[in-house]
Amino acid sequence: MTVSVFRGFRTLSYRERRNLLLGVIFTSPWLIGFLLWTVYPLLAAIYYSLTRYDIMRPPIFIGLKNYKDLITSDETFRIVMHNTLYWVALSAPSGVISAFLMATLLNTRILGRSLFRAIFFFPAIVPVFVTAMVWRYLLNIQYGAINAVLQELGLSTIPFLSNPQLVKPTLLVINMWAQGNAMVIFLATLQDVPRSLYEAATVDGANAWHKFWHITIPMCSPVILFNLIMGFIGSFQYFTLPWLLTQGGPNRATEFYALYLYRNAFQWLRMGKAAALAWILFIITVVFTVILFRTSARFVYYASEEERG
């Protein structure tokens, strides 16, 4: 391939060569950054994953032991995988559904639509740290606003964040609330759906549900797929909010993959194992994404392909 690239380079005219060179020069800041800060760490992580490395002493090569230990004998890894898969399976779809419904709602002609759009988008621009603090003070069993109301009414409080069974559903609700970015993308897509399709459907006697199911969803399906993939990738890397809100607890119920990776790397000084964890996560994410892409033809409608076909 390299040879053909060079052959191709030789066949270029002077002007084309000059343009190519200029292109490379202009993109070089990004290219250098990509090589230094993405490619090199990725490759270095492969090496470190095959070593016992505690950051302070030189790494010792131990082959595939880190991978073997994680898969065969690490009990916490199994808990972490269970928590993470639960989270990925529920948070990405529920996030997309929430964002899509919010966008659909805000695409209708309602009074104060701009204000509502701003309100729904607001969680996306608030720093996660602030979000965590607000939710903590809303949901805390002892001092939270919601529980304070329950307490005033003489009712039992609800341990949203301190009960192992309730904490993950609580995080799911917070995740559904913080879908401003996906909502804006959906909103733009919804505004691009041709009005003529709805008009034709109305003439054919379709009701609102039929239009939503047979026009809105298919027309938005490529964007649904995009948001779903982004949601899945983000869910696998879920870290900041559970770290700030629960620190992996209670009783390890929110000990997600990224938290465990961080603990291994910086708290327990097992950088080799952390690198192995990072690579396993990378592979899982890639496999997941490929499966989604491969199966997407069954549920994604591309209008442009139909036009070509």
């Binding site: 903590r136 805390n140 002892q142 341990p159 964040l161 301190s162 209670p250």
Partner: peptide, 12 residues
Amino acid sequence: GPDNLDAVRAVA
């Protein structure tokens, strides 16, 4: 109560 303790730790 373990749930109460977690909550106290989180805020107090």
